[in-house]
Amino acid sequence: MHQNGNGVKQGDRLLKMPGTLDRGPVEFRSHIVEQEGEVMAIATRDVVSVPRTMTIIAAVEQMTACGFRRLPVTDAGTKKLRGILTSGDVISLLGGGDTSRLVGEKHHGNLIAAVNESVRAIMTQTVVTLPDSARIREAVDTIVTKKIGGLPIVDKLGVLVGIVTERDVLRVLAAERSTLHVEDVMSQSLRVTAPDCPIATVTHDMMKYRFRRLPVVSDDVLYGIVTATDLMRYLGSREVFARMTTGNVAEVTNLPVRILIAGELTTTTPEKSINEAAREMLEKNIGALPVIEDSHLIGLVTEFDLVRAFARG
Results as ranks from 00 to 15, higher is better:
N4H: 05
L14K: 09
L15Y: 10
K16H: 11
K16V: 15
P18K: 09
P18N: 08
T20R: 11
L21V: 14
R23I: 09
G24I: 11
E27H: 04
E27G: 06
H31V: 05
H31E: 08
V33S: 13
E34T: 05
A43V: 07
R45I: 15
S49E: 08
V50D: 14
V50K: 14
R52Q: 14
T55I: 13
I57R: 11
A58H: 10
E61W: 03
M63E: 09
M63C: 06
R70M: 05
L71G: 12
P72S: 10
G77W: 05
G77E: 11
K80R: 11
K80H: 10
R82F: 09
G88Y: 07
D89Y: 03
D89C: 11
G95M: 02
D98C: 04
L102F: 12
V103Y: 04
G104W: 11
E105S: 08
H107S: 07
I112C: 09
I112L: 15
A113M: 13
N116Q: 06
E117M: 14
V119C: 06
T124N: 10
T126H: 11
L130E: 02
D132G: 05
I136A: 13
E138N: 12
V140E: 04
T142M: 10
V144R: 00
P152E: 09
K156C: 00
L157N: 13
G158L: 03
L160P: 06
G162H: 10
T165C: 10
R167S: 15
V169G: 05
V172Y: 12
L173H: 06
L173A: 07
A175V: 00
E176K: 14
D184M: 04
V185E: 05
S187K: 12
S187Q: 10
Q188N: 03
Q188L: 04
R191G: 03
V192A: 06
T193P: 02
D196F: 01
C197T: 15
C197H: 04
A200F: 02
M206T: 04
K208I: 07
F211T: 06
S218H: 00
I225Q: 11
V226G: 06
A228G: 13
L231E: 13
M232K: 15
M232C: 14
L235A: 00
L235N: 00
V240A: 05
R243C: 00
M244Q: 13
T245N: 08
G247M: 05
N248Y: 06
R258W: 00
I261M: 01
A262G: 01
G263S: 00
L265T: 01
L265R: 04
K272Y: 06
S273P: 06
N275I: 01
A277P: 08
A277K: 13
L282K: 08
I286E: 03
I286T: 11
D294M: 06
G299Q: 05
E303K: 14
F304Y: 13
D305H: 02
A309Q: 01
F310P: 09
